[in-house]
Design a binder for these strands. Sequence first.
DNA 1: CCTGACAGCCCGGGAGAAACCA
DNA 2: TGGTTTCTCCCGGGCTGTCAGG
Length: 334
Amino acid sequence: MITDARVLQPEFIPREVTHRDAEVNTLSSVLQPILDGNSTDPVFLHGPSGVGKTCIAQFTVERLRENVVDLNHQYVNCWEDYSRFKTLYALLEGINKTIDIHRQSTPRDQLLDRLRDYDGPPYVVILDEVDQLEDKSLLYDLYRIRGLTMILLANNEQGVFADVDDRINSRLANATRIHFRQYHHDELVAILQDRVRWGLNPDVIDTKELDSIANNAAGDARVAIGILRQAARTANAQQMNEISKDVIRKVTPEAKSEIKQKTVDRLTTHQEVLYETITEYGEISPNELYEEYCNRVGDPKTQRMVRNYLSKLEHYNLIEAEGNTRGRTYRTVA
DNA sequence: CCTGACAGCCCGGGAGAAACCA
DNA sequence: TGGTTTCTCCCGGGCTGTCAGG
């Protein structure tokens, strides 16, 4: 059934992409100066999730690498490396300058100094989910580093530019912005067809089934590919020789929740208890939530810390809060 | 009531200096 | 003297109390 499982993985970067020619071309032309060994202004890719931002960014950088002998590059997910330190560390890793940096005890901001001292070939960095970056002023610092080109990825512009000071805003104002719209139904089907061709035996699934996957994915390619992956896996395990509509129907909910589940898995026990409590109640007031949380956990943190956790959960888009004062309620994101 | 911003505490742990010892 | 152990300092990150403001 499955001939190449890699092409069904979320992080897979295809060798050819469809339906994003305009975006690829714009991005490539902005990055043009790199072909001559120069850096260029930041590029900002924005659009909802599952529309190929990460994929296109990495794809374009890969293609750039085919044409430039000397090029360093690094992908950083700011969701994971959200602190200034972690992001900088990841960026230094991309140019192998971390050898003697041992997490702590390096003088404050020596990481940035070291990045400033960089005088190698052009360095292209992709900062994914850049809106999750804790300290946005890092963008300003990075902007001023010679030879460094930033590709910034985020869902919306506000998340990135709203809470940064004018210094950064004016610098990033001349960043080229590329908007990624949601995929249309037949584009999703085409993307799925490619994955099927590259990774599955022929004839295990036909267009009608791909249609229904695309319908369920609502323009989100990550979800669509996730459903396909789960369906293939399930059919494989049950030794079926084709992927039926039934299988697709069965795996769709879990495939959809898989992404959220991944986020939940990264939470600490305390954060998880909060999230579960809110999920069970559907909607709950802050003090009721705190009481319930204390009941459920052996060694409750203070209210203050719980507030930190809650804002983190909100940041991760797992919960949302309504009202800003007395009468505020928390609820899970639909 | 509830929040976000802020300052400050403590902890783990690495580095370099200092102290110690053979 | 040189090698080893201890000490001190620094950092990031988790955590907390306070406080102004809605």
